[in-house]
Design a protein around this nucleic acid. Structure first.
Lengths: 334, 334
DNA sequence: TTGAAAGCGCTAACAA
DNA sequence: TTGTTAGCGCTTTCAA
């Protein structure tokens, strides 16, 4: 384990000079640069980042907190974050919280412990008070989600109008009885989408039956299936289902099939998010495509401005969504 | 930003005593413990881990390298790794390489730079020489995969027999013309599965046509679709397709449908991995379920033994797989 | 253009 | 039971 001392010794210069070479200072004589380079190669030297980071009081590392990487929705967002991070010489620590508060707390502590310089939340179990407190002393940004009652930068789509668009589409296909598979009530996006659904229905003069709404804390195939089983055997059952995530929607499609009905002929199903699988499922899934890559990238850029330029202001950035109509809601296509 | 100095000052003790309290040494007088605890709370002190890690020359952090979190196959493995890591007080750094050698190199350098103490590879672009070199000076373990020609601990299933089982199942369903969608040729698992396919066919006295084998470097829906399009319009087209991953298989199913054929009636499709989708797809997918959670956990345990106990020996651990038959290959079920 | 030396915040050996 | 102090490996200021 060669240290900078060893390199200095071998090259016959001081550690300061070695440090200058490593950090591309241009005040080192070419001859010295060569000697140092040679010594570095010969010793297989790599600088100890713990020492460097301690000394510089910066790690160029940020935390990215998500519920679980098993949710494909996150994949593209993370790619956007990573690409921007890399461009600015930051690296990211991806952390699965599994929605466990203790696990999340552990990771968040990495901020106070100086292991990371900032954090992007794709998801959190913290209360709005905790979030506001955290924001006071740390650089944080929310991506694709945020907690109502907090003042923290975030980048999102217009979830209210996206949901409205989707429900209007279903109505335009002739549906009058439209069920909703809703997500976690604590999330802003859930509430906004819920309101979009309610308003679209009421604007069309359609009633919303309580038994058509299924609340699912968790976005999983299983919950999508369970929701459909709930609807199918209720009296006056819905002819269309709007799920707040593609995963829920795909579970819903599966359950409709399992029970011997067809999508979209018997029941139409629509999702939300635009994950890759939405295009590959059978039938392909009508969904709201979120600009996930860009949202991730923008969130990272906002975070970098906070960390580098000390920007204190918190902003809301809203990006465009897109309604993509596919087989699962199309009466004309099989 | 309170430091240990500040706490010592406030509590009226030395930094050593504060350090002892933080690290649960039981040689501190209860009265001192209380004073220190109080000061810590009042100052909102958190130890600087960069300093601690530098001093201790350990970070209790390990690297987990994978190609992309968008592959749901990794989700359960990572969960297994994380749970074991947490139990032993390690935390993991999850890194997407995107199969880019430069990005991978960057992450691997974190070993030499002392940011992490070990690494688990779910995937790598490195050559066997590079891997062997890396293993000399670092603690590394391969999980669910390995590179032939390397001497590195790894945990896997018996890919050869798993593939054989699957192809035999297809043959038992009456198929004689069975196509293969193969993965990245550099991976051991690909070669083993390939050989299993070849041997199962030849044991049954069945011919393997060259045009029935589609090599796909990448495990994506798109490649699964492309493969099927290739097969569909070849003369003497196959009646069954064995894909080396569930993602490829689901893409294949999608393409069969798109072209107006049915699964499994016209073409049966089998996958490999046992990802969550495999049960939720329409039709549900016959696949080889790998014990992903256990494989991840075991890999982490092997790594911990190397890091903590300095175990040098490299082992191969082989776990059981399971053939799960579902709709996509079943003639009896619709 | 270079080197000496201070010091980042912590742990741990040693002495008291 | 406690405090003093060296030092982990690096960067950076200051002086030469």
């Amino acid at each position: 384990m060669a240290t900078i001392q060893d390199v200095a010794m071998k090259a016959g210069v001081s550690v300061a000079t070695v440090s200058r070479v490593i950090n591309q200072s241009n005040t080192v004589a070419p001859k010295s640069v060569n000697k140092v380079r040679k010594a570095i190669v010969e010793l297989g030297y790599q600088p100890n980042f713990l020492a460097r980071d301690l000394r510089r009081a910066e790690t160029n590392r940020v935390l990215v907190l998500l519920q679980s990487i098993s949710n494909p929705y996150y994949a593209t967002i993370v790619k956007g974050i990573e690409d921007v991070a890399q461009k600015h010489n930051y690296s990211i620590m991806l952390c699965n919280t599994d929605s466990e508060i203790a696990r999340e707390k552990n990771y968040i502590d990495l901020l106070g412990k100086k292991v990371v310089q900032g954090a992007i939340f794709l998801d959190t179990e913290m209360s709005s008070e905790e979030i506001n407190l955290l924001e006071k002393n740390n650089h944080i940004v929310f991506c694709c989600e945020y907690r109502p009652g907090t003042q923290v930068s975030h980048v999102m789509i217009d979830n209210y109008n996206a949901a409205r668009n989707m429900v209007s589409h279903l109505i335009s296909q002739g549906h009058k009885k439209i069920a909703l598979i809703a997500g976690d009530r604590h999330l802003a996006s859930t509430n906004q989408r819920y309101q979009g659904y309610i308003d679209a229905m009421s604007d069309a003069g359609l009633a919303v039956e309580k038994q058509w709404i299924f609340w699912s804390e968790e976005s999983s195939f299983k919950m999508g299936m369970r929701a459909v089983e709930n609807f199918l055997y209720s009296k006056d059952h819905p002819t269309a289902v709007f799920a707040m995530s593609d995963i829920l929607a795909i579970g819903a499609i599966r359950a409709v099939h399992t029970h011997g009905f067809r999508v979209p002929e018997d029941i139409a199903v629509a999702g939300f998010d635009g994950i890759e699988y939405s295009a590959a499922s059978v039938p392909s899934l009508t969904t709201i495509v979120q600009p996930n890559y860009d949202m991730g990238g923008l969130a990272m850029e906002m975070l970098i401005r906070k960390m580098k330029d000390g920007e204190r202001e918190n902003k809301e950035v809203v990006l465009e969504h897109e309604l993509v109509i596919r087989e699962s809601t199309s009466r004309t296509i099989v």
